[in-house]
Write a protein that binds this DNA or RNA. Sequence first.
DNA 1: CAACTGATATATTTACAATACATCTGAAAG
DNA 2: CTTTCAGATGTATTGTAAATATATCAGTTG
Lengths: 215, 215
Amino acid sequence: MTGDLSQSAQAYRQLEEGIVTLKLKPGEAVTEVALAQRLGLGRTPIREALQRLSWEGLLTIRPRLGVIIAEMNPSDFIKVLDARHALERLVVGSAARLASQEERKTLEGCAEDMREAASVPDVEEYLRLDKAFDEVVAQAACNPFAAKALAPLQTQCRRFWYRHFGQADLNPAAWSHLEVMQAIANGDEHGAMEQVENLMFYLRRQATALLSLPR
Amino acid sequence: MTGDLSQSAQAYRQLEEGIVTLKLKPGEAVTEVALAQRLGLGRTPIREALQRLSWEGLLTIRPRLGVIIAEMNPSDFIKVLDARHALERLVVGSAARLASQEERKTLEGCAEDMREAASVPDVEEYLRLDKAFDEVVAQAACNPFAAKALAPLQTQCRRFWYRHFGQADLNPAAWSHLEVMQAIANGDEHGAMEQVENLMFYLRRQATALLSLPR
DNA sequence: CAACTGATATATTTACAATACATCTGAAAG
DNA sequence: CTTTCAGATGTATTGTAAATATATCAGTTG
């Protein structure tokens, strides 16, 4: 019907997207039945999606009380970044070393698209490409365990970034991504790790800048 | 009734333990209803537990086909270790820096118990203590995101370790753990990171030794 | 101010539907 | 006559949904 994804998977995708793009606002309380009606699905798929989102930290389920979309303050984001940084080093390095020709090709295409999305600018498209980029790299690294650990952190980053910097200039972030992609595509392991260091540092600076503003 | 855990949580605990202690053998196929009967629970809690175990990589759910307990070969274990290593560095360092007095106390007690479990030797108790150790450290590090990413990797390690080295001498591994705990308890960040490096190196050596044997 | 009652939301169970796999039967070919 | 392959039917298992039970919160009443 709607692709050959299971209903749980559909629910998950839609809810995740809704959360990172803030259609579901941080702090908001929602009920299972409300979501079920909204997405036109049964309660069970919704429930399974919610559980998964819960242990990815995108929302918290409070028994008999409802689910609330997770808040995220800058200091939490720093913590996410710490964890992500540790894993990105590993994964990006492996990807530069192990990526297949096809994956390198895909990465170059992705870089091109991202450059364009940043110059339009089209934030949602940029986000989709960022996600695609992360997925290709994760696959190229040939370490599904690291990939599984990393993915939720990347999702959190996207959400936080969209919330606080979605309206800002996309170009600096995009450039930084491009450098990483180029290095991986060229099989330059050292360069890739250096560039990912820059990228993480850039995100960290953004977050700390936010911390000093009392908002 | 059985503590105040939800039935899903109970199911998860029991299944996880069953998997790491190989009461559920790698490659084995099981059905939801069989597990439900075996644990005396309904199908839904089982199902939720299975899903969680699935995205922790302890089993794979093949739609309309059944769930099969994950195999794990040494080369997979190396990958798990790569990812774990990256995160442990971060978490252990933070824990040494940030642990409360109470947490340091707990760690010292844990070290004592582990020394004893290793000398008895009591593998299952050792495993429980190892898990408790990991949990205390994760909490002390004040980074729930890193902790969530790390926990499944630690579980995988325990399982693999129990399977291949459960019968071997516990003392070397225990000592290495003790060093880490001591360093954290003393707030010696540098020492803790050094010791965790040793521990990871030790595990890696064990795995590579296994790789060379054709078994 | 305390206790009770009603409403609301989740936790769990149960039932039903859909799908895949295995087995059995039949016919056709050698 | 035997063997093999194709088709159909039966069984087992998961995916989904609805119903029931239980706990929590809020509002009201004594």
